[in-house]
Design a protein around this nucleic acid. Structure first.
Lengths: 143, 143
DNA sequence: CTCACACATTAGAATTATTCTAATGTGTTG
DNA sequence: CAACACATTAGAATAATTCTAATGTGTGAG
């Protein structure tokens, strides 16, 4: 919780603040993308889907910039990259501890809340290595 | 355990038998690939690595055939496809219940035996869907 | 044993996601 | 407001994978 301000922040202002906190210069396209990504609830996007979205919103951003931005956001901890499909990377706005359902057919990711799944017994990695993170993907299909 | 035969089967004969069981015609290239994949212990290959290997062994198989074969073997349950890298698919000769360490830097997969990790609390999938499999990937990096 | 046909293989082109390049634009700090 | 480091961009390049359409080959029927 932060101190309540006199007026509610605009999406752009929030995005700008978030970018500054992350040490990223709040450029026009980063602010736009952050606005789309973070103003609503948790989302899963691909570079292409986000580029379509931002383009349809009438904002001019190149696909290369979308890729750059997604990776920068990921490095900054604002996004989490989820690799479940051989063809495409997904970026998840929910960076907290949680896992995923994945529908191969539709290419759809669905969050599983953090506390739901417990992974026990993760072994100590081979010498010289340490655990970065543990991903659990529950692959599902239509009955 | 099968009944011991008078002489130990050759790798090719074993591969042929395995292919027939899976309902796949034992063609020259499938037998070669199955030989490489299944004669030694558990392996992880990419299409490219397997193509290199079979080529260096002096066997003429096209890359397209390697791709076809890997997918056919996967559908037949002889292999398991593991998607951990945005760029490349891995195929695991160990189709049993087990999970993986993944070293992003080296692009290296290491098996974690089946009983080691317990995943508890996998939720019931949304209506109309059923669980196909649960993948656990422990991403590790050098200290 | 041989034929015919369904299934496999192939080379090379096509596709697709992603990254690179090198030129141009723009926040930010002093 | 100038300078510079950092961003953005279009388009080319790359790389994994799939497709195409022609050629080859296991196999079951006879």
């Amino acid at each position: 919780m932060v101190k309540a301000s006199r007026e509610s922040k605009t999406s752009a202002a929030q995005a700008t603040a978030r970018l500054r906190q992350a040490g990223l210069r709040p450029t026009r396209q980063r602010v736009e993308l952050a606005g789309l990504l973070f103003q609503s609830g948790d989302r899963h996007v691909t570079a292409e889907s986000l580029h379509d979205e931002v383009s349809h919103a009438g904002v001019k951003v190149s696909l290369a910039t979308v890729y750059n931005t997604l990776h920068q956001f990921t490095e900054a901890g604002l996004l989490r990259q989820v690799i479940v499909d051989a063809a495409r990377s997904y970026f998840d706005t929910n960076t907290g501890d949680h896992q995923h359902f994945f529908l191969e057919k539709e290419g759809l990711l669905i969050d599983i809340p953090g506390e739901t799944i417990a992974v026990a017994g993760v072994p100590t990695p081979p010498a010289g290595l340490s655990v970065d993170r543990v991903d659990v993907v529950v692959r599902v299909r239509r009955n």
